Computed example of a mutant assay.
Amino acid sequence: MRAALGDWQVAGNAAMPEARPLAIEARGLVKRFDGFTAVDGVDLSVPEGAVYGILGPNGAGKTTTLRMLLGIIDPDEGYRRVLGAERPHDVAHAIGYLPEERGLYPAMKATEAIAFVGALRGLPLREGRRRAHELLEAHGLGYAADRQIRQLSKGMAQQVQILGTLVHRPRLVIFDEPFSGLDALNQGKLERMMRGLAEQGTTVIFSTHVISHAERLCDDVAIVAGGKVPFAGPVDVARDRIPAQVRLETRSGDGPWRAAMPAELRRDARTDGGAFWYFPLPEAGIEPLLRALIEGEAGILSLSIERAGLHDAFVAIAGEAAARALEEDTPEEQDR
């Protein structure tokens, strides 16, 4: 029996060595529909055992990219290698997939629904039923084992489908907008489950238009906008596209201390209209700014260095239009 993973107890694989091979390698993926280019030259490299986020607004090409990686559709150009195979169908038994369009048979009981999804990946039904009971009990859903899907709430049905995605113990799990339909409590459980899977060596890829999920979960992300990937790499590298800033709280307001500052810092200083001022962090470090503030008797109440968040990085990389589209995505759109 493999290790349990906190609130979401699921089976994973043994820890991978530090020098991890790639679970996913894609180069130059292009997909067109009726003359419209939905995905335009996407490159992705996902190490085994990673939690990897594909971040972008609805309609950016995330789902089409995932479907090409899974072999549901083939690219018009480019190639992909999944778990070492050039044909994703050859390793389908080692992949778990939660599609954006949720779909369980309404008349099926929860246990049978989980076992059925596992059977589609080669897991014998008898073993699937046994594991389904274990998973439902582990997640506090044992009372729903014999209930039909139509009798479950939307969130409970979503949890059942997630368990079905994992029941055959895949090496690679791909979630398309997995947090849709879950309340805050179960979103937190799902985040912990994803981290647990990665810790045990399973590769987790998920698409989202909610930046906070990607920022909390991922070491690496691909930012998708207009069918292209303007950035793919570590979250910290994306955030470093925007220089860190210094946040100053002063009792002196817009006082004579500003005249003591270097000209470039004085020029780029901005205020929130109250006690707080913001400056770009000088290349030489905080010392020149701190010296000017002390010499100018700024009356420092607090001073901190703040790095840009992933949202600011997304705006800088993908542009204002993509950021607006990301913010305008509604729960109703997410659930479609």
Rank of each mutant, 00 (worst) to 15 (best):
D43R: 14
S45A: 15
E48T: 12
E48F: 01
G49N: 14
V51K: 10
G53M: 10
G53E: 12
G56Y: 02
P57Y: 04
P57A: 13
P57D: 09
G59M: 12
G61V: 11
G61S: 11
T63W: 06
T63Y: 06
T64Q: 01
T65S: 11
L66T: 11
R67T: 03
L69H: 01
G71E: 04
G71V: 03
I73E: 02
P75W: 13
Y79C: 10
R80M: 13
R81W: 03
R81E: 15
R81G: 03
L83M: 10
G84W: 11
A85C: 13
R87S: 07
R87H: 07
R87I: 06
V91A: 03
V91Q: 04
A92I: 02
A94L: 14
G96H: 01
Y97H: 03
Y97A: 01
L98V: 07
P99K: 02
E100H: 05
E101M: 09
E101V: 12
R102I: 05
G103F: 10
L104A: 04
P106V: 11
A107R: 15
M108G: 01
K109F: 02
E112V: 05
I114T: 07
F116Y: 15
L120P: 04
R121M: 00
R126K: 09
E127N: 00
R131V: 08
H133A: 15
E134Q: 15
E134S: 11
L135F: 15
L136T: 08
L136S: 01
L136R: 06
L136W: 06
A138W: 08
G140T: 14
G142Y: 08
Y143K: 10
Y143A: 15
A145W: 05
A145R: 12
R147M: 09
Q148L: 01
R150F: 09
R150K: 13
Q151A: 14
Q151N: 08
L152G: 01
S153D: 08
G155A: 05
Q161T: 06
I162D: 09
L163C: 09
